[in-house]
Design a binder for these strands. Sequence first.
DNA 1: GTAATATAGCTTTTT
DNA 2: GCTATATTAC
Length: 660
Amino acid sequence: MHEVFLKSLNKLQLEAATFGAGPLLVLAGAGSGKTKVLTSRIAHLILNGKMEPKKILAATFTNKAAREIKERLVPFIGERTEELWAGTFHTIGLRVLREEKKAAGDAAELTIYDEEEQDLLIRLVMSEMSINERDVPYKAARFEINMAKNSDLGPEDLACKSKHLFADVIAAIYREYEKRLAAMNALDFGDLICKPLKLFRQRPEVLEKYRERFDHILVDEYQDTNGSQYRLTKTLAGKKRNLFAVGDPDQSIYGWRGATIENILNFKADYPEARIIKLEQNYRSTGNILSAANSVIKNNGERLEKTLWTDNLGGEPVHYEECLNEYGEARFVVDRVRNLMAMNPGTGYRDFTVLYRTNTQSRPFEEMFFEEGVPYTIVGGYRFFDRKEIKDALAYLKALRNPDDSLNFLRIINVPPRGIGRAALEKAHSIARAENLSLYGAFRRGVEDGVFKNESVREFIGTFENLRSEISVRPLHEFTRRVLDLTGYLDMWAEKKTEDAAERIKGLDGLVAAIKNYEAGNPKATLADYLNLVSLMSDADSYEDKYNRVTLMTIHSAKGLEFPYVFMAGMEEGLFPHKRSIDGETVEEERRLCYVGMTRARKELYLLSAKQRASGKETNTAAPSRFLKEIDPAFIRVKEPPPEGRAEDHIAKIRKLLGS
DNA sequence: GTAATATAGCTTTTT
DNA sequence: GCTATATTAC
């Protein structure tokens, strides 16, 4: 009990951090020091319990959270943090699969498919099966397949259990989809959890190895784990039952992704001997913010009773401002940021964040911030790696590294247009089917057999093979540059005179620079390592607060973060709670999301709504969100008169208009 | 057979 | 506002 890192813990936090063996569930309210307890516990296990770092498994929600845990542990265990198995469930699953593939002597690399690639494959499968989009929209098929994987269900289970009208058709799509993924050495996100489970079922000796390896398993954000992740956790915990789960049912906001609160609610049923510790003291927010948030979450039905409290009484009341439209919201934020910075020396742009329900809401803020010269960063939304040119470039890299990946090969074979159209593709497809080859294999066979009269096919396959032989002989960024040059992809954009072409080229330069940067930090990394990293990287992972800028992000992305000043924009019926959640009867999850957003704030919380909001071509009028009405009036101040300093702003603006 | 151009369709949250 | 698709042009 002498360790320094335990000193700053309160009684309950200390009990959780130093808990001995066996299952423990920590119900940790917002701002109750959850991460501190988690890291303290790991440090305690290693320093006091003499545990090997490599025998500890910590599953977090984002890679960034895992990185933070490691960083916090460095002062105590130094570079041994690298031995820890810390990462998202997906990262951990991939690590197991790669390790076992290698152990089995299989050198082939796995490719991870994101949602876009998943959709392409599903649509390809559906068209080959002649399934009408009108009967089964591909998005419905994707949803059902993903939900099945979230619960560790195969095609047969889906056929029985899905409530979908065409459940048996979707099950057939699922079966074919699985076959194709396997042939391409590809995995979707769900597979990263399901395939390890399958492996453990089929090979008990492999499972035994991992059970032996992990003495302690810690799971963060337990309220947002899905059925498969739960099963994986339980499977690995095995007989040792050293499972430490931390979560807050009130912050469960990923139900749409298959997360089930039941994992928390049933903990005691699975582990009757479990100790349950509630952390209810909040160290983050003022009393007013906390009380306002509590008065909202109270309106949810089935809750585990939990009352968050704080010593930090009072503070500014939560401020609600009804604006004219979305630009009014942005205007308000700019004015308020400037005022608060002027009145509070030492406060910087980094202390402010704007949270919203949907990514599209960021636009008016971007415009206004840009015009007004307010520095900002956006987390999420249109990600760099989602840009078309980046996706194309990565498709080249993926196809080169894993030539079985027919989907990405198909994506790039005629980009730039090189005269390989439908006819050539049909030919290759029939060879592939007849000879049981990948698309690339079929093209190669066709070229060898002289099937293609088209010279450009021979040429491209030649280029492709040459590039393949260069993969591991050059640094990655050089290789990437060469791919972009030799395939003519860069020239394709260079020759275009459109305005966006220059942007695309910039994007590609950015990719090469990013890869170079990655190589500098990871000298031993392979192309496969880089591609996997990109696939598993989340928006939150790339968020850095080292820049002194206002942050813009969705409330989902803000999970686990905190800021002195928080603006929640778009507090309107139909937007928040979102219309689709009202229709789908998941308003309680929206309410939890609102709770998550409000509890991000340390000092001051501003809630904004717009009377009118442009959406697409039309402008909608919306009523203020029901969540606003749920806030106890004692803690909220509605539309305070404009603070001082604003008048000067107006004078300055008039001066500017007059050009003086 | 392939490429360039116009049109429709969609934007809840993301590992 | 952006991309996949359908249509027309070469």
